[in-house]
């Protein structure tokens, strides 16, 4: 358990020092700043569409850390060293996902407060938006580690990562946008269920990818 915590802490530290922390946050806030420029300062329109834009920005921000999640550890031999110590690939993937939740999901949630203010989202919607994103972000963290493991070492990994991520996140996006409607109850439950399934499956998919790519 102590070793698991040490590995999660290392993931968080690498994110802090490697730009994995502020890069997605800055991107996320940049999108929410740019959006009003496109639509014009129509307060009603921004209030209606702003939540959806933040959802899309969060999905795209997921792609940013992908290249530094698995590949550097594969190349430097860290993954081999963990395997020699008897770590299963699934456990390594779980630690990386936990690290992503701390280093990527939590800062993005904090940035959502700022982002929603930039767009001028009604305060009543902010709570719903935060809850929905909090439910979805573990799944997005899991997906980013899974896609990083699948594409590590491939040429054009980041472009391929985008192609892989977008279809898998469609259910999250549909239910996530659904929570912004008048009555978010049902959509929120479906979002929670979808996110739980993706979060629970992603360590196994990522672990299998790690194992298959070991040479």
């Amino acid at each position: 358990m102590k070793a698991f915590v040490a590995l999660v802490a290392r993931e968080v530290r690498l994110a802090w020092t490697g730009g994995g922390l502020w890069l997605p946050v800055v991107f996320y806030l940049a999108v929410s700043t740019l959006f009003p420029f496109v639509t014009g300062p129509d307060k009603a329109l921004l209030a209606r569409t702003g939540g959806g834009i933040l959802w899309i920005a969060a999905l795209l921000a997921t792609l940013l850390p992908i290249e530094r999640l698995i590949l550097p550890d594969r190349q430097s031999g860290v993954l081999d060293q963990l395997a020699v110590r008897g770590w299963s690939d699934e456990l390594v993937a779980t630690a990386k996902i936990a690290g992503q939740i701390v280093a990527f999901a939590l800062p993005l949630l904090l940035a959502t407060v700022v982002g929603s203010a930039l767009i001028g989202l009604p305060e009543a919607q902010l709570g719903t938006l935060l809850l929905g994103l909090a439910l979805a972000l573990p799944a997005l963290s899991g997906l980013s580690v899974m896609i990083a493991a699948l594409t590590a070492g491939l040429s054009g990994a980041s472009a391929l990562g985008g192609l892989l991520l977008v279809p898998i996140t469609i259910p999250l996006l549909i239910f996530g946008a659904g929570t912004l409607a008048e009555d978010p109850g049902n959509a929120m439950q479906l979002l929670a269920a979808t996110s739980l399934a993706i979060t629970a499956l992603s360590p196994f998919a990522a672990g299998a990818a790690l194992r298959a790519s070991r040479t």
Binding site: R10, L14, Q75, S76, G77, V78, D80, Q81
Partner: peptide, 8 residues
Amino acid sequence: DENLALDA
């Protein structure tokens, strides 16, 4: 082995 596996 040839891989250092130490954070740079």
